[in-house]
Design a protein around this nucleic acid. Structure first.
Lengths: 107, 107
DNA sequence: AAGTTATATAACAACGTTATTATATAACCG
DNA sequence: CGGTTATATAATAACGTTGTTATATAACTT
């Protein structure tokens, strides 16, 4: 699985996006991350494994705890890929027939 | 399913990303999009349905053809969500303990 | 040492996704 | 009109994901 596959796939789940949003506020342990969800701890552990596999989070060992933090790499890769779409979209927007067709389709 | 669920999930598939990359070069019909892949036409039709459902492409009717083009909405939504992560990442990078931990973990 | 806390892993059921083949529909071509 | 082209849909098989419970492990606490 390419990194982009893993990263986009990881982001497709709302629980995982919520976990990332929580981590955007700062480091947190597994239990702290699990607390807001109506879901068992093993389920959260698996979500974290997916996020780690996608390069979206990093973990350290601190005694019996495994604090998680956001990782920079995957977001950069995603941004780079999306850049291609952004560029194409802004270029297309200057073509008259495209604009007219878009206006019709978007009701 | 939230729009973000659908959009990220659609982007998680390499065939669909390749289709979007092709569409970044300009509009294309289903057959044109299917041609580079070792995959049947119904499979491509379904991928297009997923992309359309995610708001990533638009289609018009032109006789018996259904030309596809990139759609702007979903990319903007994704960008907005990623903005949160980007911001958090750049903020975290200024905290010394985070930087040190990241250096260790990333070997 | 014994109990508790933090986390991981395995087995399993439920469900969703993706590809295939076969077939339907509708527009185009002669 | 009859054949062909472009696309969609349905049925189905293979496979992956996600959540649960039960259990393991290892580090703290007393």
């Amino acid at each position: 699985m390419s990194n982009l596959d893993a990263a986009f796939s990881a982001l497709a789940d709302p629980t995982r996006r919520a976990i990332l949003a929580r981590l955007a506020l700062g480091e947190a342990t597994v239990m702290e991350l699990a607390e807001p969800f109506e879901m068992t701890q093993p389920a959260i552990s698996r979500h974290l494994k997916v996020l780690e596999g996608a390069g979206l989070i990093l973990r350290r060992v601190e005694g019996t705890k495994r604090p998680c933090r956001l990782a920079p790499a995957a977001v950069a890769e995603i941004d780079q890929w999306l850049g291609m779409l952004r560029k194409a979209l802004s270029a297309n927007y200057n073509r008259l027939d495209d604009v007219l067709a878009a206006m019709k389709t978007e009701e």
